[in-house]
Amino acid sequence: MGLAKRVIPCLDVDAGRVVKGIQFIEIRDAGDPVEVARRYNLEGADEITFLDITASSDQRETMVHVVEKVAGEVFIPLTVGGGVRAIDDVQRLLSAGADKVAINTAAVHRPALVEEASNHYGSQCIVVAVDAKQVEGGAEPRWEIFTHGGRKPTGLDAIDWCRRMAESGAGEILLTSMDRDGTRDGFDLALTQSVAAAVPIPVIASGGVGNLDHLVDGVLEGGADAVLAASIFHFGEHTVGEAKSRMAAAGIEVRL
């Protein structure tokens, strides 16, 4: 009995459509974010994260409509990230029904945005998304923050940055290893562990999940408060329920 570790499926949404070839049985339209969110909710997802990867700014408004629709019928926390640049973007997504908004690149460009947003809306709804990559040099492993999908180095030390974001009022850190993202080799556990130990706020581990044991490792070895995964759920390999059963069997407190 106690606070459960969370399992969070993540959906990439491009111009209002779910991308990354989702394969569900018995689902009418696997590209419809509302249908997919409904399905994850039934499977027992603790939250759902939408990542808006829409490139063109004139289609940004589509995400707002997606959030509105999902929030009207899926009653679990919804996090929305991608393209959040200013306080107005935060406001628009929260009013549409998002519970949390993830800020990534914009926080690097203007760290004060995180402070302003959390002062205004409360830190509970401000997630700072961090893309980290291991860098050479030094005896101990070191990670740096990268932006633009891992292409642009910033020179910022990942652990220092997460600490600073927590002090600025972030309510949570969504930590993605750019080395592991898409590899299916499992989370970067050393990175996860270092950040989880460094900040007083919850940490969501992301990037690299290829099987259910990776989720277990993220919590037990990485010390993550929540685990996020995309492809193992999307491709119908595993349900959220199966993930939780595996975690429970490993002695992790989950909501079943």
């Binding site: 106690g2 309510g171 007083p200 408060d225």
Partner: peptide, 18 residues
């Protein structure tokens, strides 16, 4: 209380509890 005083319990208390 901050995590340092509670054996690592994060604040905010965020998630599903009994």
């Amino acid at each position: 209380s901050p995590p340092a005083q509670t054996n690592g319990l994060k604040v905010p208390h965020m998630g599903w509890n009994n």
